[in-house]
Design a protein around this nucleic acid. Structure first.
Length: 442
RNA sequence: CGGGCAGUAGCGCAGUCUGGUAGCGCAUCUGGUUUGGGACCAGAGGGUCGCAGGUUCAAAUCCUGCCUGCCCGACCA
């Protein structure tokens, strides 16, 4: 892509309504535009990043055997009345009437709808277990939306639902998700800590919040430092291996504010290992058994002809929130550097311009064409701004690597710079190797 | 929903107290000079001053009502 053709309305000044870094940067970098409080349009740069995150989330769901479907944003109130949550959910639910006066709502979550789908199609224990998910817009009418996309009314979320025959089987599904979440966040360049948490309006008795550490986080956390060192890469996604991993995490104390008990914390965690800080909740998993299957009458037939309510769990990841959360976790020295796995482009080509000498630009175009041919997602700065102005712009956009064509370039050696990092003089082939390698290691 | 602050050009702001017909920086457009950390010169365009009503010869400015946004709190992926 050529920068001059890109729709990326960059702001030089920070809009006064944005207070946290991720919000300021997303507005400045032309990633989002506020439509009204807590509701945003996603402009090409922001949308591209969100789509990359979505794709990683999808791949990790598929890896554990979850199947993707798509449910609507607008739901009928009926099933919510059946489950009893139409009254319980309260003001956060956006209620709508259609022209016939029928009660509808913009879905804040999908337990009822998926259960309704499941119960009408699955009748036998032989069909279990099942893991289903979708990635769809949700709406929660927040009292006070804030922090840009971190806490908005309309948000993009992956929500998965598990269906099992009994508690033991359900636990396996839960642990699979537990594993998938750790893998997902790792690929996003984040270290997420699973923490025992309150279940809120979803209900149930087992629940983990996945939290990434960031000062601007809204959740207060109490944890054992050593939990950060657990290496998930040694674990495959078969049941035994996942269970081992789960045990490793369970060894360490890690809870959010509402589950915190000072006595237990001080007893279980030595002073030097205590980690008390703030974090951002980027995922939340729940096991709630038959909380929805029972009232909604979602059962399967067993071998002996008896019926049993299926055991369910639900599993959310805030995809749109992650865009902001990654910024909060990665932002440094006024420079936003995206992890390669979600970066809007893998590399930027920045030629300096000289009066009466377009050598650098011609070199840049040649490199550009070669990289495009090798399927590298590359952005060429073909504008005639000052080089210094370009650098500032690219600090803001956060493309992790730059090829700079200037005084240090020759026909076959180029200045290759990691954003906020070191500079090397390399051939195009060497550069390509580094970029392709980066793709797989983030 | 309680408490606080704010709405003037795309963005950041001044002007409001003390009423006299709207300004600055950045951005944009034209021409020229520049090009290794947000350049320079010359010129140009862009605003029913959040909305409605009132007071006045005259309202961005005073009065009343409403709308919108932000911050703190209570509540949440």
């Amino acid at each position: 892509m050529y920068l001059s053709k890109l729709f990326i309305p960059i702001l030089k000044d920070t809009p006064s309504e944005a207070k946290v870094k991720s919000h300021q940067l997303m507005l400045r970098a032309g990633m989002i535009r506020q439509s009204s409080a807590g509701i945003y349009s996603w402009l090409p740069m922001g949308f591209k990043i969100m789509k990359k995150i979505e794709q990683i989330v999808r791949e990790e769901q598929n890896k554990i055997g979850a199947q993707e479907l798509l449910m609507p944003t607008i739901q009928s109130a009926e099933i919510w009345k059946e489950s009893g949550r139409y009254d319980d959910y309260g003001e956060e639910m956006l209620r709508i009437k259609d022209r016939q006066g029928k009660e509808m709502l913009y879905g804040p979550t999908n337990e009822e709808l998926i259960t309704e789908i499941f119960r009408s199609s699955i009748k036998s224990y032989k069909s279990l277990p099942k893991l289903l998910y979708h990635i769809q817009w949700k709406f929660r009418d927040e009292l006070r939306p804030r922090f840009g996309v971190m806490r908005c009314k309309e948000f993009f979320m992956k929500d998965a639902y598990s269906f099992d025959l009994n508690d033991d089987e359900a636990k396996k599904s839960y642990n699979k998700m537990f594993f998938a979440y750790l893998s997902t966040f790792k690929r996003l360049g984040l270290t997420a800590i699973p923490m025992a948490a309150d279940t809120g309006p979803i209900g149930g008795d087992v629940s983990h919040e996945f939290i990434i550490l960031a000062e601007t986080g809204e959740s207060k956390i109490y944890s054992d430092k050593r939990i950060l060192n657990i290496d998930i890469s040694k674990h495959g996604n078969e049941n035994n291996s996942i269970e081992d991993l789960r045990k490793k995490y369970d060894e360490f104390y890690a809870v959010t504010d509402d589950k915190f008990d000072k006595k237990i914390f001080e007893k279980k965690v030595k002073k030097e290992n205590q980690l008390i800080t703030k974090g951002i909740e980027v995922g939340h998993i729940f096991y709630f058994g038959d909380k929805y299957s029972k009232p909604l009458n979602c059962s399967v037939d067993l071998q002996d002809g008896k019926k049993v309510d299926v055991k369910m769990g639900s599993y959310g990841i805030g995809v749109s929130r992650l865009v902001g959360a990654i910024i909060e976790a990665k932002f440094n020295n006024n420079i936003m550097k995206w992890p390669s796995s979600v970066a809007p482009y893998e590399v930027a080509i920045i030629p300096t311009l000289q009066k009466n000498d377009n050598t650098n630009y011609l070199r840049a175009e040649k490199i550009y064409k070669s990289l495009v041919k090798s399927n590298v997602d590359v952005l060429l700065d073909d504008t005639d701004e000052h080089l210094s102005a370009k650098f500032k712009k690219f600090d803001l956009i956060g493309i992790p690597f730059q090829i700079i064509l200037g005084s240090k370039s020759t026909d076959d050696k180029h200045e290759f710079k990691e954003l906020n990092g070191k500079t090397e003089i390399l051939t195009l082939e060497e550069i390509k190797k580094i970029l392709l390698n980066k793709r797989n290691t983030n």
